[in-house]
């Protein structure tokens, strides 16, 4: 559905020389500054896939999305979205995509939400009966009935975002681009948004490209992530694979039976012999009888570890904590920041 090849975007800006009379000197000299925002990015997205496109601020996420949606013209490389080169044939591309920019609404600020949806239907030349059906369905799914007649400027952020999502999906585009769709939303609103996106993806096989800072969005929706930094692709693959490659460690939380301090303490040496390592408690309140063991899922089987522990110590309870995506991504970026 989407094919991106060797995509590169370079921005050229005039540079101001520092010091006195800098303003005057810019008039005579033409120093420019080149920054490569996106650097030789290549990937394919299949129909019906939900992909998380992740990266820290300034990594080139938005620039890539803007080229995929046809807003920006790349310096080199190619993008093919459903057989259309987005920036060359913007209007044809527009008919097949839906775009949500979390920080900027596409709704008509001074008009009731209902009018905005009407206008979107007109813009996308929807047949009246299709529009009526979609409208009823979305009002229902996104629970918008109570604020349909209110001007958009009076809506809460959560209500507005629901309106924006409805506007972007109303005409059943084949592809949905979501740029920070849940930014600033509360837990309930986030859940509504995620359910809705999942629903349209399942019903219509809509392809979804999602950029977000909230990795819970990705974990909930996406099977695949593309990580970029400094304009380059760092990782492209499944979420599970990402975790096992970058965060192979699982954590075993063991609570020792409190028998008045008679039992042997679990020491670092003993744990090391079992193929695991003691880690500090990351919880807010340290629990006295609890130890945390980190082990690599690929090398040590959890069942073996538990059995060995149970044989040597009086174990009251165990639980396994899987790495979350947030931690994984944080770890990858912090590692990149260090000189390799």
């Amino acid at each position: 559905m989407i094919r991106v090849e060797g995509l590169t975007k370079e921005f050229v800006r005039p540079r101001r020389p520092p010091g006195r009379f800098a303003g005057l000197r810019t008039l005579v000299t033409r120093q420019v500054e080149r920054t490569v925002a996106v650097d030789d990015v290549t990937f394919d997205i299949r129909t019906g896939e939900m992909v998380g496109y992740l990266g820290p601020n300034g990594a080139g996420k938005s620039t890539t999305i803007k080229m995929m949606t046809g807003i920006l013209v790349p310096t080199s490389g190619s993008v093919d979205v459903g057989g259309v080169v987005p920036w060359r044939d913007r209007q044809r591309n527009a008919l097949q995509i839906g775009v949500v920019f979390g920080q900027r609404t596409q709704l008509w600020w001074d008009l009731p939400l209902r009018d905005s949806l009407d206008l979107v239907a007109t813009l996308y030349r929807m047949p009246p009966e299709t529009y009526r059906r979609q409208y009823r369905r979305f009002v229902d799914l996104l629970d918008m009935a109570e604020f349909l007649d209110r001007p958009v400027r009076q809506l809460s952020l959560g209500q507005r975002m629901r309106g924006d999502l409805a506007a972007a999906m109303l005409y059943q585009p084949r592809i949905l681009y979501l740029d920070e769709p849940t930014i600033g939303l509360d837990v309930v609103a986030k859940a509504t948004m995620r359910d809705f996106i999942e629903e349209v993806n399942r019903e219509h096989g809509t392809t979804v490209v999602l950029t977000t800072h909230d990795l819970a969005d990705v974990e909930r929706l996406c099977s695949r992530v593309i990580l970029i930094d400094h304009g380059r692709v760092l990782y492209d693959g499944s979420v599970a694979e990402l975790k096992s490659r970058y965060a192979p460690h699982r954590t075993l939380v063991v609570r020792v039976a409190g028998d008045g301090g008679q039992a042997e303490p679990i020491t670092a040496e003993r744990v090391a012999a079992l193929g695991a390592a003691l880690v500090a408690d990351e919880g807010e309140e340290p629990e006295p009888d609890t130890v945390r063991l980190r082990f690599e899922g690929g090398r040590t089987a959890a069942s073996d570890l538990i059995a060995a522990l149970a044989a040597e110590f009086s174990v009251a309870d165990v639980s396994i904590v899987e790495p979350d995506l947030e931690g994984v991504v944080r770890q990858i970026y912090s590692r990149r920041a260090l000189p390799a």
């Binding site: 803007k66 807003i71 209007q91 591309n93 920019f101 596409q106």
Partner: peptide, 14 residues
């Protein structure tokens, strides 16, 4: 400047 123009490029109208 405010980026509103972006939206006009992803809609099917001049």
């Amino acid at each position: 400047r405010e980026g509103t123009f972006d939206r006009f490029l992803v809609r099917p109208l001049n």
